[in-house]
Design a protein around this nucleic acid. Structure first.
Length: 308
DNA sequence: ATCCAGGTACCCA
DNA sequence: TGGGTACATGGA
């Protein structure tokens, strides 16, 4: 432990540290923060930093040691999803595949988790997550990050040079639409502003979702402008830790369709059936089980070459 | 230049 | 309920 400390010249900054225990392994901070579940975190000199609610968090992983500042010891594990046990999760997923009818192992899944099993599903702030994924519609990850960075710069309080909080519902809803559009928000600007307005009028909207069943919570979220099934599932998975939520984007749709649903009749080239959102998501829950959200994350985070 | 990206709202039968 | 289409933006 003390040896790890000397490898970081700035390590005295970090007021907290702990070592990952057995049930927390494997864990890869880089993978977790850069796989597209959270935006706006930056890595500099080996340290990740980003904004969470009203604070700046800085986190470093060195082997099995985690150094951090900006939050209390009780909070960091929950934020990073370290209380999920990957062995338990993957074992559960494998068992459900057998129940579904697999005779042997699923080689495609096994190959994918080689690259992604150390990623975790985090517990983001629901409002921040909601804003982020409304921004994500029909965009790519770099563009989404830029867009959110601009919104924070323009509408979020600057608490340290270069660090702005997420814009709160008032700031977002009361600004002229043109200013929101300038943050590369495009046609999403009115969605952001109208949703912000609803949450400003009803500040408990998001906290009430905690006590609802998955499907009810999803229905509630989808009443918000700019929130369809995909965005609702992202918020439920990445903020509320509803691990049965399966966000179906074009990439997951392609993977599930090609590798699991469109079992080649003879060889490729048939007209590929376009499965509905619920067909894809329901298949994942039936096949992967209650940790389908993690299975989805493993497939999404794995390297591109593994499916093709 | 065209197509695509962690989609949704709206319209129409 | 289910199937097209417009919607901004930037990168490949």
């Amino acid at each position: 432990m003390s040896q790890a400390i000397h490898t970081f010249c700035t390590i005295t900054l970090f007021v907290h540290s702990f070592s990952l225990t057995c049930s927390m392994l494997p864990f890869d901070l880089d993978l977790t923060l850069s796989c597209g579940q959270i935006f706006g975190w930056k890595k500099a000199a080996g340290a990740w930093s980003g904004v969470y609610r009203d604070r700046i968090l800085t986190i470093v992983q060195k082997g099995t040691d985690i150094f951090y500042e900006g939050c209390e010891p009780g909070e960091i594990a929950g934020f990073l999803g370290l209380d999920d046990d990957p062995v338990v999760i993957i074992t559960s997923i494998r068992r459900h595949m057998q129940t579904y009818g697999n005779v042997g192992e699923d080689p495609f899944f096994e190959q994918n988790i080689q690259f992604s099993q150390a990623s975790r599903i985090m517990r983001q702030d629901p409002w921040e997550c909601l804003v982020s994924f409304i921004c994500s519609a029909n965009s790519n990850i770099p563009l989404i990050s830029r867009r959110i960075g601009l919104l924070m710069e323009r509408f979020g309080e600057e608490i340290r040079p270069g660090y702005n909080l997420f814009p709160d519902p008032e700031a977002l809803s009361e600004s002229p639409e043109s200013v929101v559009r300038e943050c590369l928000a495009g046609y999403r600007a009115p969605y952001l502003q109208r949703t912000a307005g609803i949450l400003r009028e009803d500040p408990d909207f998001l906290s009430r979702l905690v006590s609802l069943e998955y499907k009810e919570a999803k229905k509630r979220l989808m009443t918000l402008p700019g929130v369809g099934p995909k965005v609702a599932d992202c918020v439920l998975l990445f903020a509320y830790h509803r691990l049965e939520a399966v966000p179906v984007d074009v990439r997951i749709r392609r993977i599930i369709t090609i590798r699991y649903l469109d079992v080649p009749e003879k060889d490729g080239l048939g007209e590929e059936k376009e499965y509905s959102y619920d067909e894809i998501a329901d298949f994942c829950r039936a096949y992967f089980g209650p940790y389908a959200g993690y299975a989805q994350q493993y497939l999404f985070a794995a390297r591109d070459e593994t499916y093709e």
